[in-house]
Amino acid sequence: MKHKKHDEASSIAVIHSARSNQPLVAVSTDVCDLHGYRWSATPMQYLEAAVEGAGVFPVLVPSLGNRLDFDYLLGSVDGVIITGSASNVHPLLYGGDGSEANGPYDRARDSTTFPLIKTAIEKGIPLLTICRGLQEMNVALGGNLATEIHELPGILDHRAPVSDSRDQRFAIRQNITLKPDGLLSKILGTDLAKVNSVHRQSIDQLGAQLEVEAVAEDGTVEAVSVRRASAFALGVQWHPEYWVKSDEHSARIFQAFGDAVRVHADERMNAV
């Protein structure tokens, strides 16, 4: 019966891809308490970047963990975006300090994004992970994280500048060096770039399947890709979604992801 359900999902996705220039892309959500209700939600800036930067149709995935059929979901979409968030990956997932000082946490999100990431990689579904999403990808693939990195010797303060202006907090201000001939350097067409920086944590030990694509001036890992991935699989520590309409490098990341999504949609349609 399960196989029939998966076949139906694939058929629906193929019909959608054939009729639309906006293939479906699954987008992670945070658990939020608002107006007396508990919500699964994501900031609009990610959804707008998905539509306008990548040209895809974003579909929110509720943070319901193992109650969701991830195989079925990823038989119905042609890409996955794991967003940033104000919350952090729970340190118990990588043997770290789970005190509230390293929070806030969102265990429901963790239980949903980890299988989303691993299943997307296994199935060759294009994957873009941003900020917390990059950290989730690293932990899901066996790596760990350093917390409160601004307190570590020799490490720059990667947190957002203190300001009432969101544009100032997300300002492009940090230099990074890209791996020559890496996935990201090919996308951006350069080995040097400037990005924004809005994080307190970073990759410490790299996940076994990952490859470093870019580092900051202090050596902090700023981007990774999945080694020998069968589809686009990129994670960035910064926030290209914020400036996708005005910054060329931000736009190129979403364009490359959208192109990979459309290739996947076309391949699936042609396979039927």
Rank of each mutant, 00 (worst) to 15 (best):
G84M: 06
R109C: 02
E136S: 07
G75Q: 15
T113H: 02
K123T: 05
L74C: 08
V80F: 11
P91E: 08
P104I: 11
V61F: 12
G96A: 07
F114Q: 14
V59D: 04
G95E: 13
A86W: 12
Y105K: 15
V139L: 06
F57Y: 10
P58M: 09
I82K: 05
T119H: 13
G55T: 11
A120W: 01
S111W: 00
G96N: 05
D97N: 14
L60Y: 04
A120S: 13
M137N: 01
F114Y: 13
R132K: 08
D78E: 10
L127A: 10
V89P: 05
A108T: 07
L93W: 12
S87A: 14
L141D: 01
F70W: 11
G133W: 01
G103W: 13
G124E: 00
G95N: 04
T112H: 07
G142I: 00
V56I: 14
V139E: 04
G53I: 05
G75I: 00
Q135F: 06
G133K: 04
R109E: 04
D106H: 11
E122N: 10
P104S: 10
F57T: 13
G79H: 11
I121V: 13
E52N: 09
E136A: 09
P62Y: 07
D69S: 11
D71M: 12
G133Y: 03
G79W: 05
Y94E: 06
F70S: 02
N102I: 11
D106W: 12
L116N: 12
G98T: 03
G55M: 09
D69M: 15
G79L: 08
S87W: 01
A120H: 04
G79N: 06
Y72E: 15
S76I: 05
D78N: 15
P115C: 05
K123G: 01
G79S: 04
L64F: 13
D97M: 03
Y94W: 09
A108G: 05
F57E: 10
E100V: 07
P58A: 02
N88L: 03
V51W: 02
T119F: 13
N88C: 09
E52L: 15
V89G: 09
S111L: 06
D106M: 12
P126H: 08
L127I: 03
L128N: 01
F57S: 15
I121K: 06
L73W: 10
G103M: 01
D97Y: 05
L141Q: 10
Y105F: 15
D110R: 08
E52F: 11
V80N: 02
I121S: 00
I121N: 11
V51K: 13
F57L: 15
I125A: 02
F70R: 02
L64N: 04
T119R: 15
I121D: 00
L93A: 07
G133F: 01
C131E: 03
G55D: 10
S63P: 06
A108M: 11
F114W: 06
G103Y: 00
V89H: 08
P104A: 07
I82G: 05
V77P: 14
E122G: 05
V61I: 14
